[in-house]
Every structure is written in structure tokens, then in C-alpha cells.
């Protein structure tokens, strides 16, 4: 079980190819053409405004779409096996063993009257088939691994006695109880205090680096993604508009929406200034738009942007952009980096 040096695997743990998701019983196409891969030891961040489809994509990858939502086309595979058509029972074999998940509100995923250690032990037994005693030992190890001091003490506490950050650590312990290859975290740090959020991000980073865990991290906050992820997928109105290595995206965003997002993101400086905004509002989920979905809010939009669908094109090392005017609006450095270098 020790995976201090993760085997160099080229095959991605999670592979989404051209996935489209419909909501409201197939009447609304909420997400289209999403392709992304997560490899062991890497972390991929999905970022976008609410309603952009990042959470739907992540739930589809977990096989936990709500009623009325369906993967319409494309394939989702774990380690090479296609899982898009699995039924809930088959998914259960994957959950916990191959993929673990944590969400925004850790408290609601735990039974409030049962000590967290017992719940963790249950998860260990379900995922590994260990005996009661061995599972308990493993549970204590996991509690220590996720950075909870005094594991023996925490083991006996009920959820109400732990803070939000500690609960999220317990949930992470449960998620990795079966030593999965992938951890999916959907807004997992959003409701936490800033100092606690930073600690959880560090924990995830450590699990990624030391255990070779692949991480799919969903957040509306580009700053959080920047702290944790090495690859970013930017969602806008149900589509991937840009994807690439985090440094690249932050330094040289090529899609106007990504640039706009960087402009409104936290810069870590608190001078009085006129704050940047992205004018307008995103289109409603599934709205039919000819051409670029961001055109209505884009400062660079031209006629060519509004006529036909724009393809996602590769412009460099793993860097893809969905913009018709990519050639013309090249080399526009993000304001943030200009400011910093100034």
C-alpha cells in the first residue's frame, strides 16, 4: 500500500472524452464537448462561474448525476475502462476503491450521532474488506495521515465536536480509505475559513505528491485553483473555453474570458482601486447561441465570433483555447502579471 514513489503511468486515471450532459430530462443541453484527463500525482482544476457546468461534469465523472440529468454522449473512463453506462450497483464498486470524493459541506455527509472514527472504520471495511480490528488500525493511520493530531482522541468524537476543517479532513480520510487513484473535490474548501482552507489545500497537495493521488478539484475561485492545481480547465456556459498548465493559464491566458477572470480574481493586494468586473451575465443554462458563448460579454468580439461554433484548438503544450480571434488578440498579457512586474 505504500506508494511513496508512484509508478510512472502514462494512462490517465480519469479520462473524459467529448462528454455532453443534459439536464431536466434531456430537454436542456447543459454541458457539451468536455474532454479532460487526470493522471496519477497530478491535480486538475475545473473553474468557472455558477452554472458553467463544472459541477455537472464532476458529478458525471463520479456517476452521481441527479435525477433528470444524463450523460448524452462521449465517454468517461477510469484507468481505461469505460464507465459511462454503469448502473448504480456497478458504480458502487468504483466508489471508494478507485475514486473518492469530498464536497462543500462535510458535516452533512456524516452521521451526527456516531463517532467519526467508527464511520471511518466502516468506510475502510467497505472499501478494503479488512477485519474490524485491522480496519480500526488503518482508520487511525488515516486520521494521522490527513493531519489530525491526537488521532485516538478524534476517533471517539462525534461530528458536532469537530470544527469544519477537521470534519473535512475526516471526509478526506474516508475518501482515501480505499487507497483510490483519484480524489474528486467539489468546492471542498469553499465554506471553510481562509486559514483552514490553506491547510486543506496543503493536505491535498501532500497527498498528491506523496501518494500519487490524482485530484480533480472544482472551484469557483481561480485563486484556490492556482494554489493547488497543475492543470486548469476553464468552463464557461457549459463549454471548456481554455485548458492548459496552470502557470501558462495564469501568465498567458489566451481566451478573453480567462483573462477577464484573472482581472477580477484576488490579486493579493488591497490598495483602494476601481475593481474590475466582467460586464453582463452569463447566458442561462443550455441557451442556444450561434458562435462563441462568451461573445456577448467579450471586448474583442467580432462578427466571426457570432456566426458559427468555435472549435477548441491546441496552441501549444497541452494548451487549448476556444476562441475565433486567437491569432489577433495574441500576446495580451494578463493585467495581473503586468501589475506585478511593474
Amino acid at each position: 500500500m505504500s506508494t511513496n514513489t508512484p509508478p510512472l503511468e502514462t494512462r490517465p486515471v480519469l479520462d473524459l472524452a467529448d462528454v455532453a450532459i443534459s439536464v431536466q430530462d434531456g430537454t436542456i443541453q447543459a454541458v457539451r464537448g468536455v474532454s479532460l484527463q487526470v493522471r496519477r500525482g497530478s491535480s486538475v482544476g475545473l473553474v468557472g462561474e455558477s452554472g458553467s457546468g463544472k459541477t455537472l461534469t464532476c458529478r458525471a465523472a463520479l456517476g452521481i448525476l441527479d435525477r433528470g440529468c444524463r450523460v448524452e454522449s462521449g465517454t468517461i473512463s477510469f484507468g481505461g475502462t469505460d464507465v459511462s453506462g454503469l448502473d448504480p450497483r456497478q458504480w458502487r464498486a468504483i466508489h471508494g476503491r478507485r475514486v473518492g470524493a469530498v464536497f462543500q459541506d462535510p458535516g452533512s455527509y456524516l452521521n451526527p450521532s456516531v463517532p467519526v472514527g467508527r464511520q471511518l472504520t466502516e468506510a475502510v471495511r467497505a472499501a478494503t474488506g479488512l477485519g474490524r480490528r485491522a480496519a480500526r488500525v488503518r482508520a487511525l493511520e488515516l486520521l494521522t495521515l490527513v493531519g489530525l493530531r491526537g488521532a485516538e482522541h478524534v476517533y471517539r468524537q462525534i461530528p458536532g465536536e469537530l470544527s469544519g476543517g477537521m470534519l473535512q479532513r475526516v471526509l478526506i480520510a474516508i475518501a482515501i480509505a480505499g487507497d483510490p487513484e483519484l480524489l474528486v473535490a467539489d468546492e471542498a474548501t469553499t465554506a471553510l475559513d481562509v486559514t483552514v482552507q490553506a491547510e486543506i489545500i496543503e493536505l491535498l497537495r501532500r497527498l498528491r505528491d506523496e501518494r500519487g493521488l490524482g485530484i480533480l478539484f472544482v472551484s469557483h475561485d481561480l485563486g484556490v485553483i492556482a494554489e493547488l492545481c497543475d492543470h486548469v480547465v476553464v468552463f464557461y456556459a457549459g463549454e471548456v473555453v481554455e485548458t492548459g498548465p496552470v502557470e501558462e493559464i495564469l501568465r498567458r491566458p489566451r481566451h478573453p474570458y480567462t483573462q477577464a477572470m484573472l482581472r477580477v480574481a484576488s490579486l493579493g493586494d488591497y490598495r483602494r482601486r476601481e475593481l474590475e468586473v466582467i460586464p453582463g451575465q452569463p447566458p442561462s443554462v443550455g441557451e442556444r447561441i450561434a458562435g462563441c458563448r462568451f461573445a456577448a460579454r467579450c471586448a474583442y468580439a467580432a462578427d466571426e465570433c457570432r456566426s458559427e461554433a468555435i472549435e477548441l484548438v491546441g496552441i501549444g503544450d497541452q494548451h487549448d483555447v476556444r476562441c475565433a480571434r486567437i491569432e489577433e488578440i495574441d500576446l495580451v498579457q494578463s493585467d495581473a502579471w503586468q501589475k506585478e512586474s511593474a
Binding site: 481562509v194 482552507q197 490553506a198 485563486g223 484576488s266 490579486l267 493586494d269 488591497y270 483602494r272 506585478e340
Partner: peptide, 27 residues
Amino acid sequence: SIGEVFSRPAHPYTGLLVASAPNVIHR
């Protein structure tokens, strides 16, 4: 003043807050 407090926090807690705040540049 906000500029002073966050550019040169005088209390270790403020320092921790500033250092923990996720942002897209540097710290």
C-alpha cells in the same frame, strides 16, 4: 489602514490570514 495592515501585518494572525488567502499571483 488596509494597505498597511495587509502589506505589513503586525500581528502573526493577520500574517497568517494574508498568507492563507488564495490569490493568483504571489505572496
